[in-house]
């Protein structure tokens, strides 16, 4: 207390201890996975799980900006994801090179963002459940239109024979998404969004143009949903209209709510946990319980998932993290330690 922080801690631009630690942790996470890959400990199944985790993190964090931070209840994230996925797949189909992939990702993100703005302006006047249903309808319309177009391959979908999104790309895009959304949330615009979530009328009377910030959050969220979709399409070869159904939107929403509405680190943790869990169930062989009966997880995985949802909502409706971030936990502990020292 009282003494000013010195040197790096005070920060010169982005060069602060905190950012350095975050950078090193990110680099370490990447290096560990990369090392494991070179050692051959990560086989194809694990790698596809990793890819799915990255895609889910991107989708969850971007939806968290809309639903968690701005408080706008959207059930249409799969629609934006579909736009990004199909755009990227079509562009990569024509130019199967790395620049083609990057252009496809960008085009997909931008297209999703344009749709987000177009749909956002009229529908974001709606509140709560009405907005949820309108966005759900929007996503269904996008899916039906994709299903009936020639360039998208109709109901049978698009196939590509080359996976452009390798692990470094996946990691890079995930890191960029988290960085951009985290910085947006902490900027003055992000605070305006949080103010709208807390009380829209109060925010308006403080001079915040609520429509502008809602559409802004919606557009950024849609952009990154498009990026997530593009990565999904490039990694998994096959995309079908049925992939981007109502259930996909629900899955993303569940990740966000499970992690905590308004917590980016919560979304990251819950995307990782839930993806690991569902993948474990799908690939796990039947398990014999004490020789009494066998559970075939691949048959009951959806039942367990549904029960988990109900139980989590009954006992921890705020989600894992609530609105706090991982960093806050350390902060509080340090503060406690200091206050204890002072008492002593």
């Amino acid at each position: 207390m009282g003494s000013k922080k010195k040197g790096l801690a005070r920060g010169v631009g982005v060069l602060t201890w905190k950012n350095l630690v975050i950078f090193l942790v990110t680099l370490a996470a990447f290096a560990i996975v990369q090392a494991l890959r070179y050692l051959g400990w990560i086989n194809d199944v694990y790698e596809s799980t990793l890819a799915l985790i990255c895609v889910n993190i991107i989708l969850a964090v971007s939806l968290n900006l809309i639903t968690g931070f701005t408080g706008q209840f959207s059930l249409g994230h799969a629609g934006f994801m579909a736009l990004g996925a199909y755009t990227c797949a079509i562009v990569v189909g024509y130019y199967p090179t790395v620049p083609g992939f990057l252009i496809g990702m960008l085009a997909g993100g931008v297209l999703a963002m344009i749709f987000g703005i177009l749909i956002g302006f009229p529908t974001l006047r709606l509140k709560g459940d009405y907005l949820a249903i309108a966005t759900l309808g929007m996503a269904e319309i996008i899916r039906v239109v994709i299903q009936n177009m020639n360039i998208t391959g109709g109901a049978s979908g698009l196939f590509s024979n080359k996976s452009m999104a390798t692990w470094p790309w996946l990691f890079l895009f995930t890191a960029i998404t988290i960085l951009v959304i985290n910085n947006f949330v902490k900027s003055s615009r992000g605070r305006a969004c949080i103010a709208i979530r807390e009380d829209e009328i109060a925010a308006e009377s403080m001079g915040i143009n609520s429509t502008k910030y809602k559409v802004m959050a919606f557009a950024i969220g849609a952009f990154f949903a498009g990026i997530g979709g593009g990565l999904y399409a490039s990694y998994f070869f096959v995309i079908k209209p049925t992939t981007f159904s109502f259930l996909m939107s629900i899955n993303i929403l569940v990740i966000v709510v499970f992690g905590g509405l308004g917590s980016i680190s919560g979304s990251v943790i819950s995307a990782t946990l839930l993806t690991l869990l569902t993948n474990f169930f799908t690939i796990s062989p039947p398990v014999n319980v004490f020789g009494l009966f066998t559970i075939d997880f691949s048959r009951v995985n959806m039942i367990i998932y549904a029960l988990l949802l109900i139980i989590i909502m009954l006992f921890r409706p705020k989600g894992l993290m609530g609105t706090t971030e991982i960093g806050d936990l350390f902060k509080r502990q340090r503060w406690r330690r200091k206050s204890q020292e002072r008492v002593e």
Binding site: F73, V254, V257, A306, L307, L309, I310, M313, P317
Partner: peptide, 19 residues
Amino acid sequence: SSRIAVLITAIGVSLFLDY
């Protein structure tokens, strides 16, 4: 509880019945 918590529960019940 919050509306979103109840909504997620309803979705959970729906999936539970289906599967």
